[in-house]
C-alpha cells in the first residue's frame, strides 16, 4: 500500500470538492483497501466519506419505494424490516454477499461501485485490456468464473449482487456533482465493455453516488434472489438471479429476470420475461422461461457449466418469486 494523505469529508459538498484525479474515495473501505494492497490503485489522497453525515439512512416503505443512503451497510439492508418484507430480492442479495464481518463494513454504494474480481484484472502481473493493455487474458486463459454473455471484448462478470437486484427491481442511482443532481436507471448506469472498457458504470469523475432509489413494487408483485457459489457461505456467486413476478389475476402481467455473475453488467433475460407475460406461472412455464434465459449464451472454454447452472437458478428463482412450490 502506498503512503497517502487522508481527508475526512463530513458533507456531500466537501466530498464532491475533493473529487479529482489525485483522490480516491473510501466508504466502508473493503474493496478500496483490497485495491490499495493489490497495487491496483495508488492515490496521493484518500478521501474518507464514511464520515459524511446523513448518507446512512434507509427511508420509505412498500408504498413509496425506498431511498437508500450509499453508506448503509449490507448488514443493515439485510435486516431492515421494510427491505426484508417488501423488497426481498434486495435484502437477500445484501444478506448473502461475503461474510457477516464484511457485511458489517461494506456499504451499499461501495457494493455497486466495486471493481471487478477477474483475477487477471486484480493481478498486477497482467496488463489486461481493462487496465489499458491489449489483451483480455480470460478469453483463452482460466475463465471458469467469467462471463457467459457479452464476453467478446472483456469477460469480467459484474461483481455487485446489489446491482443485480437493483436492476431487477427497476431501481436507480442518484449522482451529485457541482453541476447538480441526476437520477440514472441502474440498468443504464452499468456500462458494458463496448461502452466503457476501463470502468464499469457511468459515474463521471466529478460525481458522487448519493442515493439508491427503489420504486414501489405493485401490490401483486413479489421479488426473489438466489445465489449459488461453490461454497454455501463466504464465496462469490458463480450464478445469481434476481426476479420480480407481478400478477394480474392468475397470469403474470410482468416479469423481471436479471442474471448476475453472468455478464460484464447485470444481464436482463428479455426473452424469458416476454415468454412469461400473459401466462400463469407454473413449473412448465418457469422451465420454458429458464430455457429462454440462457438462449444466446457464448460460454468460454471452462465455463460452459454456468449455462446449465443459470437455467436451474432462473427456474428456481421464478418459482420462489411466484410462490410456486
Amino acid at each position: 500500500m502506498n503512503a497517502f494523505e487522508w481527508v475526512n469529508a463530513t458533507t456531500v459538498d466537501e466530498a464532491i470538492g475533493q473529487l479529482g484525479a489525485a483522490s480516491l474515495l473510501k466508504a466502508g473501505g473493503v474493496d478500496v483497501l483490497d485495491r490499495l494492497k493489490e497495487g491496483l490503485d495508488a492515490p496521493p489522497r484518500l478521501v474518507n466519506i464514511r464520515t459524511v453525515k446523513g448518507l446512512d439512512r434507509i427511508e420509505g416503505d412498500a408504498a413509496t419505494g425506498l431511498r437508500i443512503g450509499p453508506l448503509v451497510t449490507l448488514a443493515a439492508l439485510d435486516v431492515h424490516p421494510v427491505v426484508r418484507k417488501s423488497f426481498v430480492a434486495l435484502a437477500d442479495a445484501a444478506g448473502h454477499a461475503a461474510t457477516p464481518q464484511i457485511r458489517n463494513m461494506a456499504t451499499a454504494g461501495g457494493n455497486l461501485l466495486q471493481r471487478p474480481r477477474c483475477w487477471y484484472f486484480r493481478s498486477r502481473d497482467f496488463h489486461c485490456l481493462k487496465k489499458g493493455g491489449d489483451t483480455c487474458f480470460s478469453q483463452h486463459g482460466e475463465n471458469q468464473y467469467h462471463a457467459i454473455f457479452g464476453n467478446e471484448i472483456c469477460a469480467i462478470v459484474h461483481p455487485s449482487a446489489l446491482g443485480t437486484a437493483l436492476v431487477a427491481l427497476g431501481g436507480s442511482v442518484e449522482l451529485a456533482s457541482s453541476r447538480g443532481k441526476r437520477i440514472v436507471l441502474a440498468e443504464q448506469f452499468f456500462l458494458p465493455p463496448a461502452a466503457a472498457l476501463e470502468r464499469e458504470n457511468g459515474l463521471a469523475e466529478d460525481e458522487l453516488l448519493t442515493a439508491i432509489v427503489v420504486p414501489p413494487l405493485g401490490a401483486s408483485a413479489r421479488s426473489a434472489y438466489t445465489k449459488v457459489g461453490e461454497k454455501e457461505s463466504f464465496d462469490w456467486p458463480i450464478a445469481e438471479v434476481a426476479a420480480v413476478v407481478e400478477r394480474s389475476g392468475a397470469n403474470v402481467s410482468r416479469a423481471s429476470i436479471v442474471l448476475g455473475a453472468a455478464a460484464p453488467v447485470p444481464h436482463r433475460a428479455t426473452a424469458a420475461e416476454k415468454l412469461l407475460a400473459g401466462k400463469p406461472l407454473t413449473r412448465e412455464t418457469a422451465r420454458a422461461a429458464a430455457r429462454a434465459a440462457i438462449e444466446g449464451a457464448t460460454p468460454l472454454s471452462e465455463n460452459r457449466y454456468k449455462v446449465t447452472l443459470f437455467e436451474n437458478v432462473v427456474r428456481r428463482t421464478l418459482l420462489d418469486a411466484g410462490g410456486v412450490r
Partner: peptide, 23 residues
C-alpha cells in the same frame, strides 16, 4: 490482508469487522 481469512477480526462499536480492511 485481503479479508479472506478472518484472522484479524476485532469488534468496532460492538460489531465484528476485519481490522486488515479498516484504516
Amino acid at each position: 490482508e485481503l479479508g479472506e481469512c478472518g484472522a484479524c477480526a476485532v469488534l468496532v462499536d460492538g460489531e465484528p469487522v476485519l481490522a486488515c480492511l479498516v484504516l
